[in-house]
Amino acid sequence: MKKLCFLFIFVLSFFQALSQNDIENVSVSDFNTSSYVGNLRTSGLWVPGVVVDNTIKGSIYLFPNFNSNYIVVLKSGKSINVVNLNFNLKSKTLESYLSKDSVFQYDLDKFDYVLKNDKRYKVFNDGDLKGLSLEICNLNSIQFLKYVHLSTTKAVINPMTNVIISDAEYTQISSYFFILNGRKVKVQLKKNAVLNALIDKSDLIKEYVKTNKLKYDDEGDICKILDYYKSIL
């Protein structure tokens, strides 16, 4: 009972914070509790709690748990402190967990960034980067992002004995992207891939990397390369 009261107070407080930060006010009359997808205007929607499949190893969530300190930056520029948040890699939704029977999914179009500790995640509402992308460095017209997507490996079963040899598993796989003056470029952290993405200045970059003993597979060095690339535009 205490837990349910706490959850109710949390939800009420969070929605009050949203309304105070230029997002429409939300009330219980905005959704139909008899439906599994209640519309809460443009702020998000209620969905059934996730049923955990214990036969599959790993997690469908980006962060280890929901209980941490987050700062959500709205597109209006205002910020909200949140302590119950996670990103569902399977449905590509930002969620607050309320109970085993209730999850709230936020409208990604309302948010610009999610900050967790010293990490800054850019929020996209569509395209190849829909969801949260870790911003490794931001040079205004140039960004370097890491995007995580979910891969599911099926269980391997011995056809003779019908015994499971290896369990099914969720694996989080990272991909890298450059955003160059609004253009998204998927890139591997390899010499040829990086140089091809920055082809117009590739000769100068090769010399810069060689002189400064940088590595094409190092995230920090890639930020230095992009900073140099920007300086010679």
Rank of each mutant, 00 (worst) to 15 (best):
F6T: 07
L7S: 11
L7D: 12
L7T: 14
F10A: 02
F14K: 09
D22Y: 13
N25I: 12
N25K: 15
V26K: 00
S29Q: 14
S29F: 13
D30M: 01
G38Q: 13
G38C: 07
G44S: 12
L45F: 15
W46P: 05
V47W: 01
G49H: 10
V50W: 10
V51P: 02
V52R: 05
V52D: 09
S59Q: 00
P64N: 06
P64A: 01
I71C: 05
L74Q: 03
I80A: 04
V82F: 03
N84P: 05
L85V: 03
N86H: 02
F87A: 03
N88R: 06
K90L: 13
S91C: 01
K92C: 11
T93C: 10
S96G: 01
Y97L: 03
K100M: 12
D107S: 14
F111R: 03
F111Y: 08
D112E: 12
Y113T: 00
V114R: 05
N117G: 12
N117I: 06
K119V: 14
K119S: 15
K119M: 15
R120L: 11
Y121P: 02
K122V: 09
D126Q: 08
G127D: 08
K130L: 09
K130P: 05
L132C: 09
L134T: 10
N138I: 10
S141G: 04
S141R: 11
S141E: 15
I142K: 03
I142W: 00
I142F: 08
Q143K: 15
Q143S: 15
L145T: 11
A155R: 09
V156Y: 02
N158W: 06
M160F: 10
T161D: 08
V163A: 11
I164L: 04
Y170G: 05
T171F: 00
Q172N: 05
Q172F: 02
F178W: 10
F178M: 08
I179R: 11
L180P: 07
N181Q: 08
G182P: 09
K184H: 09
V187H: 02
K190H: 12
N192E: 15
A193I: 02
L195E: 07
N196R: 09
D200Q: 06
K201C: 01
D203V: 10
D203K: 03
K206W: 07
E207T: 14
Y208S: 11
K210F: 15
N212Q: 08
K213R: 13
Y216M: 09
Y216D: 13
D218P: 00
D218L: 00
K224N: 12
I225T: 10
L226G: 10
L226W: 10
I232K: 05
L233H: 07
